[in-house]
Amino acid sequence: MTEQDFILLPYPNILEEGNFSWESPSNIALVKYWGKKKDQIPENPSISFTLNECKTITTLTFTKKESNKDFSFEVYLDGNKKDDFKPKIQTFFERIESYLPFLRDYHFKIETKNTFPHSSGIASSASGMSALALCLVELEKQNVYRFFNFQAIENIDLNFFNQKASFLARLGSGSACRSIEGDLIVWGKTDSIEGSTDLFGVKYPYKVHQNFKNYQDTILLVDKGEKQVSSTVGHNLMHNHPYAQNRFQQAHNNLEKLKPILESGDLNAFIKLVESEALTLHAMMMTSMPYFILMKPNTLEIINKIWRFRQDSGLHISFTLDAGANVHVLYPENEATQILEFIKSELVAYCQNGHYICDQIGFGAKKID
């Protein structure tokens, strides 16, 4: 598909007012994307687990307005007006207007809430932008359906709906395109994955061993504050990074290596690859110019304790990191009892105010009736 495929034939805006609600999860990348080209195109492919409990719930209320000169919207987080969110939404609307031509015809009230701390390294922009994109595509779908009297519309089937929502979400936040579906989502064109594309996330198309079903992710909230360096700034620092090209190739190679691991259920090989990816992501941050460190001392304490416990117990506990200080502790469902006991007794002490989230693989966004 190309970008032009997401521009539908002209249709009138039938709906005068109303609202739609969607919930969309965050995701945690196993093979990381770091660095992007123009129009939110990734420099390298990535693959992620979709989460289940860490999600954003967004209600989009829309009212037709007389003038279509400007975008008109207000944003609320947890019931509080958030004008500081407006520049990002403004940029998002500017990027997607050619694909959703009705944006200037409505006034929007965007009400959103997270089930996890905002801006704390759990990809709130991914769940937030994907939830908003889903609401907007839902509005388009309802207008088109009403115009065509609810007859079957080839371009508005479920597959197209998800692809367009993922495509639009990407233009708000790159990793948001991986939050529409689950449980394993690939984003970025690579020869390793049939059907992969830079334009939107696709479901991982190959066999996955039972070991990875219901995989657990306990998120240790080491630091719930704002990151000192935004992901956007971090991605931009890859443009002149001395190790960028090697890193991009490494991601392609690791996706190829991951395929037989997922098929065979080789947990030890999975652990090595995923932890290496996490540390490589932070190595790119530490070797950019300017350089920065998002890990905290307690992040390192947790990692070392995980390594020691894995060696002593033989259990398949591992970690991954996003662009932040928090630690995602990954482990198979059949080892959850022992590993959770270890987490509570040894690792929670390193969390801010003892806060952590128990999550697992999920299966994508849901419309809320």
Rank of each mutant, 00 (worst) to 15 (best):
D217W: 04
G195L: 11
S231V: 14
L267E: 00
H241N: 12
K259H: 14
S230D: 08
N236L: 10
H235Q: 10
Q216V: 14
K213I: 15
L168P: 01
D266E: 11
H241G: 07
V208L: 04
L237Q: 02
N155G: 10
S192Y: 12
S231D: 08
Q210Y: 09
E277V: 00
S166A: 12
S192I: 13
Q216G: 06
H252F: 13
E263F: 12
L258A: 07
F200A: 02
K272F: 15
G234N: 04
L281E: 01
F148T: 10
N254H: 13
K213T: 15
R146I: 10
I185T: 11
L258P: 01
N214S: 08
Q228L: 09
D191I: 12
V202S: 03
H209E: 02
E275I: 13
L262Q: 02
Y204V: 03
S179V: 15
Q210E: 13
F200S: 00
I156T: 05
D217S: 06
A169H: 02
R247G: 09
A152C: 05
L267A: 02
T197C: 04
A283G: 13
H241W: 12
E277K: 01
R146T: 13
F248H: 12
H252L: 10
L220G: 01
E277M: 05
H239W: 13
V222G: 00
D157N: 07
L267P: 00
V222H: 00
W187I: 15
Q163L: 04
K272V: 13
G188M: 04
I185D: 03
F167M: 05
L171H: 06
E154W: 03
L255A: 06
I156G: 00
A169C: 11
L267Y: 00
F200H: 05
S175T: 15
N246Y: 15
G188Q: 10
Q163E: 11
G201T: 05
E226A: 09
V202G: 02
C177H: 05
F160S: 04
D198T: 12
E256A: 12
G265M: 01
A244E: 10
S192A: 13
T280S: 07
Q151I: 14
F167A: 02
F212R: 00
K213N: 04
K207T: 15
R178C: 10
A278W: 01
L158M: 08
L184K: 04
L168E: 03
Y215V: 10
I271M: 06
S166P: 04
H282I: 07
E181Q: 12
V229A: 03
N253K: 09
K189H: 10
L221Y: 11
D223M: 06
A169S: 10
V274A: 05
Y206E: 09
Y206N: 06
Q245D: 15
P242Y: 12
G182Y: 04
L184N: 02
T218H: 06
E194N: 07
L171V: 05
N214A: 08
Q245N: 08
G195C: 08
F200V: 11
G182L: 03
Q245A: 08
T280I: 14
R247S: 12
S276Y: 14
E226Q: 07
D191Y: 12
I185R: 01
Y204F: 15
L255H: 08
P205Y: 12
V274L: 05
N268I: 15
G188S: 11
F161S: 03
Y206I: 14
Q250V: 15
S179P: 08
